[in-house]
Design a protein around this nucleic acid. Sequence first.
DNA 1: TAACTGTACTATTGAAGTTAATACAGCGAA
DNA 2: TTCGCTGTATTAACTTCAATAGTACAGTTA
Lengths: 138, 138
Amino acid sequence: MLQLDYSNPQPLYEQIKEKIKEMIFRGLLPTHQQLPSVRELAAMLTVNPNTIQKAYRDLESQGYLYSVRGKGNFVAAPTQDHIASQVETLLKEMIGPIKKLRLLGVTLETIQNLVAGAYEEKSFSGQAGHDHHEGGRP
Amino acid sequence: MLQLDYSNPQPLYEQIKEKIKEMIFRGLLPTHQQLPSVRELAAMLTVNPNTIQKAYRDLESQGYLYSVRGKGNFVAAPTQDHIASQVETLLKEMIGPIKKLRLLGVTLETIQNLVAGAYEEKSFSGQAGHDHHEGGRP
DNA sequence: TAACTGTACTATTGAAGTTAATACAGCGAA
DNA sequence: TTCGCTGTATTAACTTCAATAGTACAGTTA
């Protein structure tokens, strides 16, 4: 669980955050489940404890975790506010691409189809997606 | 035309690229239209010529411009490949958010509605969008 | 007390991104 | 040619940030 990719330009603490969020999303980490301690997880991943602390701290401020001094970090109960905030953030990420697609002449219908296609697919890919082939212009 | 925002953490050359792309999208810069020279635009924006060159160079490699040594930079004729590549890139940007929305329990229908809403809106906002209010958790 | 937990702070290293300065090379007209 | 424009290449300086290291402090529990 929780494999880091050092060739990834993404910071380690971001990768850690993504992995933990994914596990929470998928229900692998139930509410109030205790997570490994800062020092323990740091040892497991052979990274500095500060790196873990930053990840936990960010996740706490985003409402995914709560920490208790002297006890540990735990999975927070999802709140309506929290979820709404996540949804809002994700929707905002989509606005830019949508508007650009429109300017490129892509119809709404085409976009809708691709949205549906992405939605139906089973796999979860945070950002470590499968790259068919990127660009390539002659 | 082409106002830079120094308080924006986004690099200057990225801002410049976005602005030029937007003008091309909107048809303000017709095909084979000559752009200001590297030094000229640098003087206009009071930035280093290399900053402009990087922007132009990137846009050229993305198929938006072509440069002729000793003459200048010009708007490229849009090709099928170029457009297809842009569309593909934009669609990929949407896949991550869509999958995360599904895990959050947002229905496809809801997403479709919001996609349609973003598509219908008239304004173009590359990223310098109007922020209503970001997050905010009590 | 002892051994765990989270938290805070400073300092340093290293890498990457960004901008700057300068020199070189092609084009076109006087 | 010469002059003044154009893009291009190279190197250096500067800044920012991720990551680590070390240390210290504070709460919990057996």
